[in-house]
């Protein structure tokens, strides 16, 4: 039990560290396109890691009630993981394409921050 707890905490901590990296990138990088690099990758992995940790917690530690709707929670979390993996890059790609089509200039080395 302690081992599983430790694994769950490692998953959650890794996820939150990656999410913080993504937010620091969002605040610190110089322009729109490079900011999306940070959020598109770090957020996806961070959120998937946190939800995977909670999935492990539900499967091995949490003692669910008798109702079926509680026992089906791991399935919902699995759907969430698959959906985040599919939707997060797609949303990033959609915003980026819209920006590129409307003519937002990419930042080049040596330019001022935008």
């Amino acid at each position: 039990m302690v081992l599983i707890d430790a694994i769950v905490i490692i998953f959650l901590a890794a996820g939150i560290i990656f999410m913080f990296t993504g937010v620091i990138g969002l605040l610190r990088l110089p322009d729109f396109y490079t900011r999306l690099h940070a959020t598109g990758k770090c957020d996806t992995l961070g959120e998937v890691l946190i939800i995977a940790g909670l999935l492990l917690y539900h499967l091995f530690v949490y003692s669910p009630g008798a109702e079926l709707s509680v026992k089906l929670v791991p399935v919902k979390l699995l759907f969430l993981i698959i959906f985040i993996f599919l939707a997060n890059p797609t949303a990033t790609h959609a915003i980026m394409k819209a920006a590129y089509k409307t003519g937002v200039k990419p930042w080049k080395k040596g330019d001022a921050r935008m």
């Binding site: 993504g22 729109f32 990033t92 819209a98």
Partner: peptide, 11 residues
């Protein structure tokens, strides 16, 4: 700009 805002709201 609006795109930074949309990206941040998505995040």
């Amino acid at each position: 700009g609006v795109f930074n805002r949309v990206a941040a709201i998505n995040v």
